[in-house]
Design a protein around this nucleic acid. Structure first.
Lengths: 224, 224
DNA sequence: ACCTGAACACCGTTCAAGT
DNA sequence: ACCTGAACACCGTTCAAGT
């Protein structure tokens, strides 16, 4: 790669994301980013004030990749389900970087678009301003956490290392005292990895939507 | 402090937690931990294999501080509510460190005790082994995320800096285009900070429990 | 305008040594 | 057994300089 006019926020955010995908967020350093572009570390400081801004850009890039479904005439909870599903679909390819989104949803336009859409749906559902704000925040953060804590994923490890880690975890949990932890031992396999990622995410999203509906029901009985 | 026989895993985990509370997790370094005990950095390596083990111990300490309610005869969802409330109560004093728990619940006995209790309650509710495992994991991780992403908190900042950050965030959100983000602008205050932490956590926990009950209801209709 | 180079204060971790 | 000291390879960031 040449080192002339080839740098930009966008391209550096893309490289940072690739680096996080390959080796984990802790491997995203100013120096390694510079190295990938055959450039001095200091060259990056033309495009970013500091390292945190690199992570801001990375999070923005991730949020921009959410394919927000167009509003339609179905009930709010079905549309919420689809919005959260789209959110998860955007994050799943990037489990190492997804956690960076947590404090940054309201810090970029793509994140604000997602938040705005969520608030619209909760307003349709009858939530007041404050309840909608806190519920939207919790729903979006829960979805991120679903990806970050997917059982059996290992930060920045290749498939083989991942399988070894899962096997080791299963062995450890299975070897626990069945007297003290009978349910943990019985569930060792499911706790160490998902048998089906699709089922894991489908159930997780259903649970979040069900939670919002539960809160909403309480709202309505309070009004009545 | 003397430097003779004064070090131990427990005491170092305590110092690490205090350091995280005061200045954020990124300030928890081997060298600063050693400094707080008037000791050479290398002295810590008698008690920990590497830095990650320090975080493991810190997480274990946090999980050990959960005051798990004694089982009683009330319905599973009420007991689940109280268990999650106790979990939140243990984490709230340590918002900077709470995130360290996320991948570590099954890595220590105190965490396993919490997980086992959660699995017992979900089994009472009628969940199968795999559904209970994934649901327990999601519920506990969501509760952690609730603390980590509490609106308006700032990692390792004092009260004044925190207020400044909240004021700035409110101003930024309020100044957004009301054409593009009407609901975000209207909810600016609630998005930037909680007006009531008690309400925020109460609603958050209710939403998680309601989510579990929603999944359970789907289970029962599938059986019927 | 954009990139380089040298320097500074930090970091985790190794190895060999002290007592 | 427990801690020290010097060293190594890394890190983010500053400042002054090149073109």
């Amino acid at each position: 790669m040449s080192a002339h006019g080839r740098l930009s926020q966008e391209i550096l955010a893309q490289t940072a994301l690739a680096l996080a995908d390959d080796e984990g967020v802790e491997s995203v350093t100013v120096r390694r980013l510079a190295q990938r572009h055959s450039v001095t570390p200091m060259a990056l400081y033309r495009h970013f004030k500091d390292k945190d801004e690199i992570f801001d850009s990375l999070a923005e890039r991730l949020l921009a990749s959410v394919a927000i479904p167009a509003p339609d005439r179905r009930p709010w909870h079905e549309q919420t389900h689809d919005l959260l599903t789209a959110f998860v679909a955007a994050l799943r390819p990037h489990p190492n970087a997804a956690g960076l989104i947590l404090g940054r949803i309201l810090d970029s336009n793509p994140g604000l678009v997602v938040a705005e859409r969520m608030l619209v749906l909760l307003t349709e559902a009858g939530f007041g301003v404050e309840a909608a704000a806190e519920t939207a925040s919790q729903a979006l953060c829960s979805v991120v956490t679903l990806v970050v804590t997917e059982p059996g994923r290992r930060r920045g490890a290749d498939a083989e290392a991942r399988d070894d880690a899962i096997r080791a975890k299963k062995a450890t949990l299975t070897a626990l005292s069945p007297r003290h932890y009978p349910h943990v031992v019985a569930a060792a396999n499911a706790l160490a990895s998902c048998s089906s990622e699709e089922q894991y995410y489908a159930r997780g999203i259903r649970m979040i939507v069900a939670g919002i509906r539960g809160i909403q029901a309480a709202l309505e009985t309070a009004v009545a």
